[in-house]
C-alpha cells in the first residue's frame, strides 16, 4: 500500500478524456516521476490527487487507504503555474501559506526562514515577488508549497522555462527534500530530469499509462536492445573470428561490422549484461585486434517514447 494509490482514474472535460484509466502507486520515500508530453494529462492527474479537481471514476486513496479529507494537509503542492502573490514580499508569501496550517509565533517564523533558506531566497526575503526573476519566482513557489513540511510533495513541471542555475537548484532541492524523508511526485515532459532524479517513473500519453517502473524495468519491458560500439585500429584479419565469438555470447542479439577507410567498427546489440564489456575485450585480444574505442549506449527514454508513440517527447502534440 503506497502513500498515494491511484486506481483506474478517469477524468473528462466535456468530450475530451484527459485522464483515461490511470493507475499509479507512489511508495513512501520515492521520487516518482510522471513523464509525458504536453497535454498528456499530467496536471489533470495531479489535480485529482490533490483533491482540487473532482474526477469521474476510479479512486485515489492515501496512506492506509484514507480518503483525501483531512489528509490533504499532508500534501505540499507546487503547481505548474505560479501560485504566489506578486505584490507581497517573498517572506510574506511564505508566511501566509505557512500560517494556513496553524503555525504561529516563533515556530511560524522559524519555518518561514527555513523554507526561504532552503530555496536560497533568504537574502532577498523582503523583496516583492513581482521583482523576482522567473527562476526566483519558481523557487518561491516551491518554498510556499513545502513550508509546512508535508509528507508528500507534488511538483508539476517545476522547471519549465527557467534558467539552468535555478533549474539545477530546484533539482538539488528535490533530492534534498527526499533525503529529509518526503515522498515526491514530480511531473515533467523533459526526460533528462527524470533520469537524473527519479527512482520510479510512469510514462503517460493521451491520459493512459504506457510504461512504468524503474528505468531498467521500462527498458526491459520494452524489449529494447542496448548497444555497444567497438572501434578497432587498422588491420582486419581477426574480424571474422571476433564476430563469430561475439555472436555466440548469450546476451548478444546481433552484431554488425563495417569497415571504412581501413577502420572497422562493430555494433553489438544485446540485452542487460554487466559482463559483456569484459568479454568483448577478451575476445578482441584472442583475435589479435587492437581496440581504439569502446563504449556502450543505453537507449534513452526519449527513444523508447518515440518508438512507443511515434512522436517526440519534448515537443509534445
Amino acid at each position: 500500500m503506497g502513500i498515494v494509490n491511484i486506481k483506474d482514474l478517469k477524468k473528462t472535460f466535456g468530450d475530451l478524456t484527459a485522464v483515461d484509466g490511470i493507475s499509479i502507486t507512489v511508495e513512501p520515500g520515492e521520487i516518482h516521476g510522471i513523464l509525458g508530453p504536453n497535454g498528456a494529462g499530467k496536471s489533470t492527474t495531479i489535480g485529482c490527487i490533490t483533491g482540487l479537481l473532482p474526477y469521474d471514476s476510479g479512486s485515489v486513496t492515501y496512506e492506509n487507504a484514507q480518503p483525501i479529507g483531512k489528509w490533504k494537509r499532508n500534501i505540499g503542492y507546487i503547481p505548474q503555474d505560479l501560485a504566489i502573490y506578486p505584490d507581497l514580499s517573498a517572506e510574506e508569501n511564505v508566511r501566509f501559506f505557512c500560517s494556513l496550517y496553524g503555525f504561529k509565533g516563533s515556530e511560524l517564523k522559524k519555518k518561514t526562514e527555513e523554507a526561504l533558506d532552503f530555496v536560497g531566497l533568504l537574502e532577498v526575503k523582503r523583496k516583492k515577488a513581482s521583482e523576482f526573476s522567473g527562476g526566483m519566482k519558481r523557487r518561491l513557489n516551491m518554498a510556499c508549497g513545502i513550508v509546512h513540511s508535508p509528507k508528500l510533495i507534488i511538483m508539476d513541471e517545476p522547471t519549465v522555462g527557467i534558467d539552468p542555475q535555478s533549474r539545477n537548484r530546484i533539482l538539488e532541492n528535490v533530492k534534498a527534500l527526499n533525503k529529509k524523508g518526503a515522498t515526491i511526485l514530480y511531473t515533467t515532459h523533459y526526460m533528462p530530469e527524470v533520469e537524473e532524479i527519479c527512482n520510479k517513473i510512469t510514462v503517460i500519453d493521451h491520459g493512459k499509462v504506457i510504461a512504468s517502473g524503474t528505468k531498467e524495468d521500462i527498458l526491459d519491458k520494452m524489449g529494447k536492445d542496448r548497444e555497444m560500439d567497438v572501434t578497432f585500429t587498422a588491420g582486419s584479419d581477426g574480424l571474422a573470428g571476433f564476430e563469430e565469438a561475439i555472436q555466440s555470447i548469450e546476451s548478444v542479439h546481433r552484431c554488425n561490422i563495417s569497415t571504412e577507410d581501413n577502420i572497422s567498427t562493430c555494433k553489438i546489440f544485446y540485452s542487460e549484461d554487466q559482463t559483456l564489456m569484459e568479454n568483448v575485450i577478451r575476445v578482441a585480444a584472442d583475435n589479435h585486434l587492437t581496440i581504439s574505442n569502446i563504449g556502450s549506449l543505453e537507449p534513452s527514454l526519449e527513444e523508447i517514447f518515440l518508438t512507443l508513440t511515434g512522436k517526440e517527447l519534448r515537443d509534445g502534440k
Binding site: 490533490t50 505560479l82 501560485a83 501559506f97 508549497g145
Partner: peptide, 13 residues
C-alpha cells in the same frame, strides 16, 4: 488567476 486559491483550499481554509 494566481492559483493561490488552490493552495488556500489545500490548507483547509
Amino acid at each position: 488567476k494566481f492559483g493561490t486559491i488552490e493552495r488556500i483550499k489545500l490548507g483547509g481554509a
